[in-house]
Computed example of a mutant assay.
Amino acid sequence: MTTMDDIMTAFTTEDPSSISPSPTPEDDYEYPDLLCDRASVREFRRLYEPPLFWMITLVGGAGNLAVVWIYLNFRRRLKTMTDVYLLNLAVADLLFLITLPLWAEEALHGWSFGSALCKVNAALYKVNLFSSMLLLTCISVDRYVVIVQSTKAQNSQVERRRCSRLMCVGVWLLALLLAIPELVFATTTEGSSQEYCRMVFPPSLGNSTKILVLSLQVSMGFCLPFIVMAFCYRVIVAKLLKTRNFQKHKAMRVVLAVVVAFVVSQLPYNCVLVMEAAQASNMTMTDCEEVKRFDKAGQVLKSLAYMHACLNPFLYVFVGVRFRRDLLQLLRICRCQPPASKSKLSSTTRASVMSDSDTLQALSL
């Protein structure tokens, strides 16, 4: 005989960002997957997530802290809008990375940090998700203006830098606005003798609210920004192909690599969210084993999505010539090595200064 504890245990969600309505006994017939025992999914999460999340936190934290340090200490590098956006991107990643140890602890021992921190932790992921995509969209639009409308960009550098700061403020405010559902509905819930942090809607709201929130995340957090970026880079590539300066193609590598890495990491997980919305709408999966396979696949793709927070610094180091120079200078400072000769330092400084009047310098990080 199935008890309420069995139902709550089966219903407990393994994904901290997943969304489920609060079940009641009279609604059992509407949720046939409630009777599916997902203990194997929880065990998979317990073994899989903690070491991976800690690795992402340590590697991504070190890399993004280096990015922030370099940008703040080499203030000349903030002369372009892209620099301002990339600095904010690193800050967004750091805010997200501080939440992963809490999710790792929940995977091992359940959530023991209270409902308030549950709301904050769930919201920070969404703030990072939306702000990252919107900042990458801003970068794409800025590169479009610099290359396709180079004369206009050169004549309005001061206004554009001021605009970039206003855009960053707007991005953060919009990301916070889109994270309101997490602040409202994320809470702790009991399951399998442990508490978990997850989204819980009142029964009166039902699955329609879950579908709405998932649709908002997919559309605003991926589809719309991706459409804008695809348009901008299609025009940029067409413009560059008409030039004979092939160094400009190399200069595009950093920004393109950052965008491609984010899309590759986020697209599979957004497909999972679309399938979750379909499941909430018409229960497309009713077989228990199929549900458990989907949950495990979602865990893996969710981790792939989280890894974007530690990818960007490595893209800067291995692709960005100027960033690599500044990183070597940072390492020399950390090792207390004597500075480079005056002539060499002067040459490096000139190479590091970014100017939108030169398209190559504007794109090289």
Rank of each mutant, 00 (worst) to 15 (best):
M4H: 08
R165Q: 11
Y48E: 07
A230P: 04
R234S: 13
L134E: 05
S208V: 04
K296R: 10
P21L: 02
V146Q: 09
L365V: 05
T2W: 12
S303Y: 01
D287P: 01
L65M: 11
T284F: 08
V91Q: 13
V272R: 00
V255A: 15
S303I: 03
R45T: 10
L97R: 06
M354F: 09
V158L: 14
L216M: 07
I211W: 00
S131A: 15
S40A: 08
G170V: 11
Y48A: 06
M283T: 15
N245Y: 02
C118S: 07
K126C: 08
L72A: 15
L205V: 09
T187D: 13
V67T: 14
A230D: 10
M275D: 00
V141G: 06
Y31H: 13
S204T: 04
M252H: 06
N245C: 10
S364G: 11
I139V: 14
D15F: 04
T2H: 11
D287N: 12
T359V: 12
E105H: 07
M55Q: 12
D356E: 11
K296M: 07
V255W: 08
S347A: 12
V120F: 13
F185E: 03
C271H: 00
Y31C: 05
Y71I: 14
L135D: 02
S204N: 03
L216W: 04
T243S: 12
D326P: 07
R77F: 14
Q279I: 01
E159G: 15
A66P: 13
S18F: 04
Q299M: 11
S343W: 01
R293D: 09
L212E: 01
A278E: 09
P21K: 04
F294E: 00
E26M: 06
V260P: 02
R46T: 09
R46H: 07
L35M: 12
A122D: 13
H109K: 12
L327T: 03
V158Q: 12
Q154M: 14
M275W: 01
V254W: 07
Y31D: 06
S352H: 03
A116C: 12
E182H: 12
A280Q: 08
N270V: 00
S265M: 08
L256S: 15
M354Y: 05
D33G: 00
V213G: 01
L135T: 10
L363P: 01
V317I: 12
A277Y: 06
S17K: 02
N121F: 15
L212P: 00
S352I: 02
L136I: 09
I139H: 03
R165P: 04
E43C: 06
S131C: 05
N128I: 01
Q329M: 09
F74I: 08
K248V: 12
A277F: 09
F53K: 11
M55G: 13
V254A: 04
S352Y: 00
T151Y: 09
G61T: 10
A351Q: 04
F74Y: 15
I180S: 04
N282E: 14
C36K: 07
L345W: 04
T24M: 10
